[in-house]
């Protein structure tokens, strides 16, 4: 199966670029942490997963980006990760399925899955509505414990500005 990125590439808009990129910035804007230089930033992978790190750098929430959700179309099934599973960055931890494609969800960083969003079992379309929402009723996929290695992995990911640039480039290719 293909990563989200690959599925998006298959159906990439050539004539227009339906890029949704305000939400991430907006979400970050309302977070009430005292931001330091190194944490509290939502990070993105090139495979279109996002992860938020908690203030104590021990836990995180992850999901797929709003850009990806928009591009995939109506999500009809979500294969959730397995609770308790320890995974490496890049491991396939689940999948999202739309009418036209199936995409792997990959772990953005090395971590242990502590909780999964069971709402998505009944309402997979929640991801289309609020992909980057980590609240109850949001489209987040899993909560995780971030390992030491995971913290290092995090440094390799994109911040919101870089991800925005990345998706624009994706749309134009």
């Amino acid at each position: 199966m293909a990563s989200i990125a690959r599925c998006l590439r298959a159906a990439r808009p050539a004539a227009f670029s339906a890029v949704v990129r305000n939400s991430a910035a907006r979400t970050i804007g309302v977070r009430a942490f005292s931001v330091t230089a190194t944490n509290e930033i939502r990070k993105y992978t090139k495979e279109h997963e996002w992860i938020d790190l908690s203030a104590d750098k021990k836990t995180g929430v992850l999901g797929i980006s709003e850009y990806a959700a928009k591009q995939l179309g109506d999500i009809v099934y979500v294969e959730l990760p397995e609770e308790g599973k320890e995974v490496q960055a890049g491991d396939s931890i689940g999948a999202v399925e739309s009418v036209k494609s199936a995409s792997d969800i990959n772990a953005p960083v090395s971590c242990k899955i502590t909780q999964i969003n069971l709402v998505l079992e009944e309402k997979p379309g929640t991801i289309n509505q609020v992909a980057e929402d980590d609240s109850h009723g949001g489209g987040w996929i899993a909560k995780v414990q971030v390992t030491e290695e995971g913290l290092k992995d995090l440094e390799k990911l994109m911040d919101v500005a870089a991800y925005e640039e990345f998706t624009v480039a994706e749309g134009e290719k």
Partner: peptide, 19 residues
């Protein structure tokens, strides 16, 4: 290739468990 391309050709054994 466009719609299913690389989708399920080699189904990965997902870490998603047998929960």
């Amino acid at each position: 290739r466009a719609l299913r391309g690389g989708v399920c050709r080699s189904p990965s054994q997902s870490a998603a468990g047998a929960r």
